[in-house]
Design a protein around this nucleic acid. Sequence first.
DNA 1: CATAATATGTGGCTTATGCAACAGAAAAAA
DNA 2: TTTTTTCTGTTGCATAAGCCACATATTATG
Lengths: 210, 210
Amino acid sequence: MNSNFNIENFYYNFSCNCNKAQKKTFSKGQIITTYIQKRNQLCILLKGNADLVRYDLNGNRTIVEHFSKNALFGEVFYKVTTNNELLVEAKSKCTVLFYIYDKLKDPCTHGCEFHNTLTEHLPELILNKITELNTRIELLTQRTTRDKLLMYFSLISTRKLSKTFELPLSLTDLADYLSVDRSAMMRELKLLKEDKMVDKIGNRIILLYE
Amino acid sequence: MNSNFNIENFYYNFSCNCNKAQKKTFSKGQIITTYIQKRNQLCILLKGNADLVRYDLNGNRTIVEHFSKNALFGEVFYKVTTNNELLVEAKSKCTVLFYIYDKLKDPCTHGCEFHNTLTEHLPELILNKITELNTRIELLTQRTTRDKLLMYFSLISTRKLSKTFELPLSLTDLADYLSVDRSAMMRELKLLKEDKMVDKIGNRIILLYE
DNA sequence: CATAATATGTGGCTTATGCAACAGAAAAAA
DNA sequence: TTTTTTCTGTTGCATAAGCCACATATTATG
């Protein structure tokens, strides 16, 4: 894996001469894309936060993925197998780059540097994606709400290199992300506080165990 | 996505002249690889069945993934973030191809056709992998054991193009795959039978609804 | 600013699910 | 073959977690 490649800087310097990328802006609450209608799409979130959301027949909402800056998403990553609607909703003001995957793969004849770099690094970007998905699976296979919460906190904590951090999701969304009932999650959160495992001040979580 | 490419035939005709691939055989129960020790590894399961298994601190076993013929696995797909042991266990006699991912990426100077084809098609193979993982996530976000079972059956049914099919996993393993208690799953299975939703004769499942 | 909408926090009640224990069937090993 | 091990099927009991309802806090919006 080429560790010299800095994704952060790369996206920041976005400029694409060819006509293969479309750049769009969305305001909070807008639907960025749907996976059933828009096939073969690859999207890059340049700015903002968004959720991949599924509504099932029982009315349950699940946050399948939570995207922040530089996240890759789109139907290429999710060849739809079920008939559930999959929507990407903007949680804040978002800037998104849209590609058609098949066109993206071919080398750019416009000498478009961004595009070529993207193609070149696509495998490793996709591998990062896989790692995220595997982490998500590990989270979801936790048997209890408590274990889900603790693992989720631990993941964020590791990512932020700190025992104290802001939740990137509202509690309502977190419940949908962990695939548990919100009120049950709140109860468990209270128990975790009582057991001196975590503390919570507003939006801020503090891990108290070693 | 290049749909002319037939993975099935491709693996079948495996022959690699270069020294980059290692081919090994495992008997049932053997550990094929561990993700903590073997970094940067990409494996192809040429023959047999295997499970990616995690044992957590509470002694719970989870089947993170179930691999059959042609499956890709290895630590490249699972950059380890937690300290849980991840083992790939052979469920039957297995033949496995091992690559070091970094070496695989570079074009082969030995004119090794298999290797070059593999490199060329890696992105789409990896995208297939992502689709599997997303399906798995959708399965795990089902809220109840009943819904997990029904979705699992539905997935197999779609794959086999039939309302009747053999379970590819034992019931014990299925419970670990769905991340539920085995006895609770058995109970739910009985209820599904009583409700005339599914029938089960030995290892064979028959879907009865519409 | 006022008012609406959404998010948080809590509790009662019910049910699904986990856990433990066991018996019989099936499969593997000796 | 016999013996051992693993898998299946079932039940009673305890409890985690779902569901509902509501009060308050916080955040959007006209």
